[in-house]
Write a protein that binds this DNA or RNA. Structure first.
Lengths: 223, 223
DNA sequence: TCGGTGTCCTTTACTAGTAAAACACCTGCT
DNA sequence: AGCAGGTGTTTTACTAGTAAAGGACACCGA
């Protein structure tokens, strides 16, 4: 809402991620830059994503720092998890720009998108599931989106606890209008990787995500 | 802070991500599950991360839905960006568990971690940079961490606007105590991928992150 | 030396999310 | 029928972040 100019804006990243601790924070901020001196040269054009060589990113710097302090620890996981988190943070920050131009937050777009792609009405709890957010959050968003005329709700005739939400024509048009723009932008972002590598990356992420989503298996960490 | 029981808690993901719109939200929530019917079987054990084949994750389902509704759009970017976001959300949710056991939020740990890995004092603004958060957020966190005796501050003698923050012994011990546990947990999470694939993934993410961090280059989306 | 300008940090006002309690309603059991 | 218990949704109270304004201070140039 504030920085809808799309520019990363230097140090005010909305949500950091991070390698600071090395895990990853999708919502807050990590700390991973300042690896070398402390604080990048700032003027240097930053290593180019030379197709082929994996260049030096902020995560690499952070990992280096940790290795110096704790040479005995295997910092391997940071290289993946830190990067996933950092990528997510930057993507979010940058990606939201096209949405904001349309006056939507990502969360709102996700909700509308869920309705659009399923093609049918959804109840608030289904939306919460689809959208990976709490029911309370869905309630709030629905309120706003309804006021803006993008969705409508009707009560279930059988079970009066239940509501059914559907897109209005305006809502559908909005989603359909934004989506191609979003995809176009995303292609730009991914352009640093050739299409073969993109497939590779998608496949690997799919495996990782599969593991993460396999509810059990990760629930209880080290413990 | 609230759910320090570590259990992912089903549908109350802290920050969703997502493929709903397809971009990715590190802070809110997306919508990508419910691809097939709508809403996963819920009882089904969810596809196992069979080592080798890229299984079917929630993102794949969402992408399928979009392709059905908009067969003309190239949904390729979603396969990567959606997964990055979703992974970040799940990692965060799960990973925070070990931290919470220690009574820290990720943001707090990131801050402490930045101090620990750089090995020297940092000013609040340096911490903000390291941590990818706003100065105001750092101020708040420092206040809390100081009260808890994990960090201390001293004023700069030359420039009285500046403060220097350093870890107390307790702070350092806390970080050093948590870090190995975090890494151990992360290795568990990544165990689904053999080490060769992990290297591959780290390399690809590094390229992507490089592109994202190369400030210019992505600033102006499609536009 | 003194004012303008910029920097560092904090404060203020506000937003968007969560967890848990509260509601309203269904459903199955007795 | 009537109630116990469960489910779908909303409400409440609160948290943690942001942006922007504010205060203190340094530094430069006249």
């Amino acid at each position: 809402m504030t920085a809808h100019n799309g520019r990363p804006e230097q140090g005010e990243a909305a949500s950091g991620e991070a390698v600071a601790g090395e895990a990853a924070a999708a919502r807050t901020a990590p700390g991973e830059a300042a690896a070398e001196g402390h604080g990048r040269p700032s003027s240097g054009p930053a290593p180019r994503p030379v197709p082929g060589a994996a260049r030096d990113d902020t995560v690499a710097g952070v990992v280096r720092q940790w290795r110096t302090v704790h040479p005995d620890l295997d910092t391997g996981p940071m290289e993946i998890i830190g990067r996933v988190n950092r990528c997510a943070a930057l993507l979010q920050q940058a990606e939201d720009a096209p949405l904001r131009r349309a006056g939507l937050s990502r969360a709102e777009f996700d909700l509308l998108g869920a309705l659009r792609r399923t093609g049918h009405e959804l109840t608030p709890s289904e939306l919460a599931r689809e959208t990976f957010s709490s029911g309370a959050a869905v309630t709030k968003r629905l309120k706003q989106l309804t006021e803006r005329g993008l969705v409508e709700r009707r009560g279930d005739t059988r079970d009066r606890r239940v509501a059914h939400v559907h897109l209005t024509d305006a809502g559908r048009d909005l989603v359909d209008g934004i989506l191609p723009e979003q995809l176009r932008y995303e292609r730009t972002v991914l352009a640093g990787l050739d299409s073969e590598r993109q497939d590779e990356l998608a496949g690997l992420l799919c495996m990782l995500l599969g593991r993460l989503e396999g509810r059990q298996g990760l629930a209880r960490p080290a413990r």
